[in-house]
Amino acid sequence: MSSAAIASSPEAVKPAPGSRWMRSEEARGLAMISPTLIYALALLLVPVTLVVAYSFWTQNYLEIDRTFTFENYRQALTEPIYRDLFIRSLWISLVTSAVTVGFSYPVAWFISFHGGAHKNLWLFLVTIPCWTSYLLRVMSWKVILGYGGVLNTGLMSVGLIDEPITSLLYNANAVVITLVHSWAAFAILPIYVSLQKIDRSLIEAARDLGDGPMRAFLRVTLPLSMAGVVSAFLIVMIPTVGDYVTPKLVGGKDGVMIATAIQAQFGKGANWPLGAALSVTTMVLVSLVAAAVVLALRFAVRRIR
């Protein structure tokens, strides 16, 4: 019997529980993954569980009161300052992911359909900027958009404007621009992968049957690449909602996001339970918005078809 047949046998014939073969394959797999799994359990699952637990506790000065309470969540959801921060964070991450996906799709399409023999090189060039330090990238946007920054002084020396534009830096737009720049490659890669999987003869068939290029794109290419669009959306949206550096450096007063409030509760504010509740609420809210976006995208595509 070939090794492939052995490998596929558990699906076909279920061996009796506790059989030797089952035990060895499963045990060896589990043994192999266990160091990594134990590490992830100890330093990811346990800490996140602790955060969830803390969010239901309260703190009196330095004492932690372990009585179960929703008080932190009541504060997180009803106090205007946190409500505003949640709304703004969700809005910024939603806009950022929509813009990133929208601007990146044509590039992913170009690489996939017209990349020629050097597709890997194109992808590598797209990813390089994203691997350089994120702190430095945010800093360079501050240098570009600042009052005495590159854009203002550049435009002034060319003579397009007479005095610096003050509305470039320290607002939500600056945060969105910087985040779009930071996450571009993360959006291109999943879209590219899903475009690569499309059977090109399907598009030809649509063209042969009389669809124009636009209709063929909307009815064949776009729906078939939807999985990539959805994962690009999620992979940008979920991490950006909790971004700390960008709002701090280029956001100013109008660009503050929830991460600043969370950090404050673990630093000087020192109210861990409230900080934990803010963290959990952020995760839950962003998951809800992300789920709504996924559903909306699926629905939109079905309507086009």
Partner: peptide
């Protein structure tokens, strides 16, 4: 190399930091 029960949840947990806001990982640690 191997196939075993719980492979998907185990992989999911190990890969989870990619899909979490980094500040939450930082705060929990």
């Amino acid at each position: 190399r191997y196939r075993f029960r719980g492979q998907r949840p185990a992989t999911g947990l190990i890969m989870a930091p990619l899909f979490l806001p980094e500040i939450i990982v930082a705060v929990s640690l």
